[in-house]
Design a protein around this nucleic acid. Structure first.
Lengths: 215, 215
DNA sequence: TCATTTCCTGACCGTATGGTCAAGGTGAAG
DNA sequence: CTTCACCTTGACCATACGGTCAGGAAATGA
């Protein structure tokens, strides 16, 4: 029956699905554990428990702890790169940088663990993604510096150092993920509400865009 | 002879000096190792080697790895609190926030390891300094928010959300320490020169002060 | 010189961790 | 039903780690 086919298609027992779902569960658990404990403090047992799988099963899908870690780091990097497209097809800094801040603030809220793992990785000297920094990130940065410089030349913003503007954007937006615990503590122990997040985004965008004379 | 007394005063063999010097050597080594490897990744053996002492000697001065770690975290926190005095006795945001940015940027250059240890600690949920966040840091923050609000009321700057301004200041200045490796990679692999640091400080200060309408 | 306190350190111990493996389970195709 | 590829997992191992301890060295004061 066609019904059978559909049901079997949704059953978790399907070969490909099993692989996909388990890898996803492991990666999600790993992202959280690596973020909360650091690479050294994370244990495969903890990740396994959080993913609801026996430890030996983790090594069936990911050969080593480092392999698993690498995948987690790559994940957040790709998410950030996607968000960066806001930058490109914008007529000026108000739209481009405004959208970039929005996108990065949203990611800080939806992917705080990934952001922390990335921060940890870079703080420890980028032992596993140094090549990414030297290739993809460097190229992306140079490209964006060019875009900002063009906006400056066109008189759409004040002549600030584009490099330090990018650092300020990264620092400010990621701070809300990486230092989320500190922010929560200073917010009476509660996570930021929807309204407070809206305020945070507006405040950052406002200060940045005024800081560069775009508004 | 009086000469003997002086020499013996300078000899490292003096009781108090021995304790002070060894504790200092251990704390310096620990700060570096904790920053580079994280709490979980750091080992007492590594710290001992870097301090030039046998591992057992570390446990003579610091009972446990956690005790040692706690001391390192407290150290950077006190340094930051000292720097924050720039804020208080300032007539307005240009002087106050300007000096604060200067001070924090200087610390990011001179104490990058401490900054990373603090960041790591907070990212992992502040397991050992949560009480500091809830007391000292919270009080300090509320006080500074009051100062900023007064400046706003006096028309010395635009009405921005003081809390998010503080976050922006922390994020931006500490970024140069915590993400120093990334910044160095994007700087052709070289550490920022004196001139580049000067430019960084000026750029940050300029964007921030303009962002809040103080200049 | 002697007694006392402080400092030093090699050797050792229990535990926890990353990783392995062999044996068994399970769904799909023929 | 049989086959086969893929998935699952308890038990196991070597290693590395934080921490201990006993015995000795060195400094200090009387």
């Amino acid at each position: 029956m066609s019904g059978d086919a559909q049901i079997s298609r949704l059953k978790p027992g399907r070969r490909t699905d099993i692989r996909r779902e388990n890898e996803r569960a492991i990666l999600d658990a790993a992202e959280k554990v690596f973020a909360e404990a650091g690479f050294g403090g994370a244990t495969m047992q903890l990740i396994a428990d959080m993913a609801g799988l026996p430890k030996a099963n983790l090594h069936y899908y990911f050969a080593t702890k480092e392999d698993l870690y690498r995948r987690v780091v790559q994940q957040i990097f790709e998410i950030w790169l996607d968000a960066a497209s806001s930058f490109d097809d914008a007529p000026g800094p108000v739209e481009g940088i405004g959208a970039y801040v929005d996108a990065k603030m949203d990611i800080s809220r939806t992917h705080p663990h990934g952001s922390k793992v990335w921060a940890s990785e870079v703080m420890h000297g980028a032992p596993v993604i140094q090549d990414y920094l030297e290739t993809t990130l460097r190229d992306w940065t140079e490209g964006r510096i060019g875009v900002i410089q063009r906006w400056i030349d066109e008189g759409k913003m004040r002549p600030v150092n584009p490099r330090h503007l990018l650092y300020l954007l990264w620092a400010t937006t990621q701070h809300y993920a990486d230092f989320g615990h500190q922010i929560q503590t200073l917010n009476a122990g509660r996570p930021l509400s929807d309204k407070q997040w809206k305020d945070a985004k507006a405040s950052v965008k406002d200060m940045v865009l005024r800081g560069i004379g775009a508004i």
